[in-house]
Design a protein around this nucleic acid. Structure first.
Length: 158
DNA sequence: GCCAACGTTGGC
DNA sequence: GCCAACGTTGGC
């Protein structure tokens, strides 16, 4: 099966790429996603070895800050079962988990982030869901050529 | 099954 | 902090 490419959003005030870099083994479980489309990607489509762009949202400037690799495929998001958790969801249980997550490992933090403004200016990236109006998906598929283009932009910058 | 109300996301 | 866009919920 061909390797796939993804983009995942995180608010740096909640969990930034630097937080990921500080984790043991630079790996984290991507919990707290409560959107069905994003859930389906994580449950069904993200496979070990897939590449992921780490994106900082709700910050100035919004930007892609690095590359990660999926190291564990979809499994139940246990934070949904924990009443103490901010992400608690009473509608799921252990037998029928409602929400799923994957583990990702930091591969590379960009020396220079690729900002949303730069992505919008790049003609090759206009098809990305990221730049389409009203997009709110926190986990979305990315084309290989788009992924490669963003990595290239981070290298050309600075 | 429709749709208004509500909560959240996320750029600006 | 504002607000447009969107997803979800719940009454009917």
């Amino acid at each position: 099966m061909a390797k796939k490419y993804w983009l995942m959003k995180s608010e740096p005030s909640v969990f930034s790429i630097d937080d990921l870099a500080k984790e043991p083994k630079k790996t984290t479980h991507w919990d707290g996603v409560r959107n069905y489309q994003a859930r389906n990607f994580m449950r069904d489509e993200i496979k070990k070895g897939d590449s992921v762009l780490f994106y900082h949202s709700n910050t100035e400037p919004p930007c892609v800050v690095g590359v990660c690799e999926a190291v564990k495929e979809g499994y139940p998001d246990f934070t949904a079962f924990d009443p103490e958790s901010k992400h608690y969801d009473s509608k799921g249980d252990g037998d029928k988990p409602r929400w799923f997550m994957v583990d990702i490992k930091l591969k590379k933090k960009f020396k220079k982030p690729v900002t949303l403004a730069e992505i919008k200016e790049n003609k090759k990236l206009q098809k990305m869901r990221l730049v389409q109006k009203g997009n709110r998906l926190s986990v979305m598929p990315v084309e290989k050529k788009e992924f490669d283009e963003i990595v290239k932009m981070s290298e050309n910058n600075g």
